[in-house]
């Protein structure tokens, strides 16, 4: 392997490139999911409110649907946190990969990820 002196400026660029690449698609996916969920939960809230107001949702289901509006908001937040965790994992690994690659080239060894 040809040894290359580690250039901090080039490494910084590589890290930014790796981070941007890792985050770019994920941010769009997470944003799209969040928008569609917020719209769906708002629609569900409106449906339940209408059903309760006009009596088309029976007495025995009213509390159930209302309780689930809270549950689905919590579940949405929980899912969002899960997605962000995956995105952060990919980000950390992309950054470590870029650093690792640069050090490997400078040290003349292949560092395992």
């Amino acid at each position: 392997m040809e040894l290359q002196e580690l250039d901090p400026t080039a490494l910084a660029k590589d890290i930014i490139g790796a981070a941007t690449g890792a985050l770019g698609k994920d941010v769009s996916t997470i944003e799209g999911f969040a928008q569609s969920q917020v719209a769906a939960i708002a629609h569900q809230a409106s449906l339940v409110a209408k059903g309760i107001a006009d009596g088309s949702i029976g007495q025995d289901l009213r509390e159930y649907f209302l309780d689930n509006l809270k549950q689905m908001a919590t579940s949405f937040a929980n899912t969002l946190i899960g997605l962000v965790e995956v995105a952060i994992e990919k980000l950390i690994n992309a950054i470590v990969g870029a650093i690792w690659d640069a050090i490997g080239k400078a040290a003349g060894i292949a560092l395992p990820l």
């Binding site: 999911f33 769906a40 569900q44 449906l47 088309s56 649907f65 689905m72």
Partner: peptide
């Protein structure tokens, strides 16, 4: 009722999504 079916549908679909 049709409204109850719609509410179950909406709820299940949100969680499934």
């Amino acid at each position: 009722s049709a409204m109850e079916i719609a509410a179950f549908d909406g709820q299940a679909t949100i969680y499934m999504s």
